[in-house]
Design a protein around this nucleic acid. Structure first.
Length: 247
DNA sequence: AACACCCTCAACCGCTAAATA
DNA sequence: CTATTTAGCGGTTGAGGGTGT
């Protein structure tokens, strides 16, 4: 809501200047991350909290890798995107030093455009195509491949169940979850790298490499094809459950 | 040189979910 | 239990640099 009594100064926008970067970097190195709303006030930056957070996360944070993607990184992005769709943060999680924004940009500018995956088209041409198509096809093509607005059957982020715990216990749970994250992602990627030939779960027929209708593009793929979801939904140490969801 | 067009990517927007008051 | 705040996500925009004519 706008407050008429108090004419709030509009937060500064646009590209960050080196001196602003320095201020933010120094502030966070001193005070730590978080509570972004107060960062601009306390640091003297007249930026919004979101802007500060984004600048830190995507640019100033230590170990950020900048510059062109290596062939390996590009290959991994393509594979992961095939597997996960537009879940950029998950994909970026597999690329040390890369941010979701960077991966997303790279996909949209380099990979998507080149149509490396064949079916996927550049955003603009896709829009034009949608405009020209009849209603029935339009509805299909408008389906988000995996929009965050459309609820996935299972969340790809573990539910945090820290209710009723004290601060230290909460921290511990979060660390455990984080470890579990790495674990299932690692296994899923290994699985993917090995053409789904992994030992934990019986490979569903639709996930086998020679399955002719093995297509991810455009439509949200069924969750039983998503090995990431499998690992999370059913755990990494059990093969219970997956078979019951097979067609 | 001047202009138009294209491309890239940093930053912003709108939204949701989780955490906190 | 509800309201508010905070963090995070994916989609989109637009400034600025590059390239073609």
């Amino acid at each position: 809501m706008e407050n008429n009594k108090e004419t709030k100064a509009q937060p500064k926008r646009g590209l960050w200047k080196p001196e602003e970067d320095l201020i933010l970097k120094n502030y966070i190195e001193t005070h730590g991350e978080g509570n972004w709303a107060t960062v601009s006030k306390r640091s003297g930056l007249m930026r919004g909290g979101k802007s500060c957070r984004l600048r830190w996360k995507n640019y100033l944070r230590p170990n950020i890798k900048r510059g062109g993607m290596s062939k390996e990184e590009e290959d991994l992005i393509i594979r992961m995107h095939k597997l996960l769709g537009n879940r950029w943060s998950l994909i970026a999680g597999r690329l040390p030093g890369r941010t979701d924004n960077e991966v997303k940009n790279y996909w949209n500018t380099h990979l998507n455009k080149k149509s490396i995956l064949g079916k996927r088209k550049a955003v603009d041409s896709n829009k034009k195509q949608i405009e020209n198509e009849d209603t029935e096809t339009l509805q299909d093509s408008k389906k988000p491949s995996q929009s965050h607005n459309s609820q996935p059957i299972f969340s790809t982020s573990p539910k945090r169940t820290t209710e009723g715990l004290d601060l230290d216990e909460k921290k511990e749970v979060k660390e455990q979850i984080s470890v579990r994250d790495t674990s299932w992602m690692e296994r899923a990627v290994q699985c993917f790298n090995n053409d789904y030939d992994y030992d934990m779960v019986e490979t569903p027929v639709m996930m086998q490499p020679n399955y002719s209708n093995f297509v991810f593009d455009e439509d949200p793929f069924p969750f039983y094809l998503d090995s990431f979801v499998q690992f999370e939904a059913f755990g990494t140490d059990s093969d219970v459950g997956i078979q019951s969801f097979l067609p």
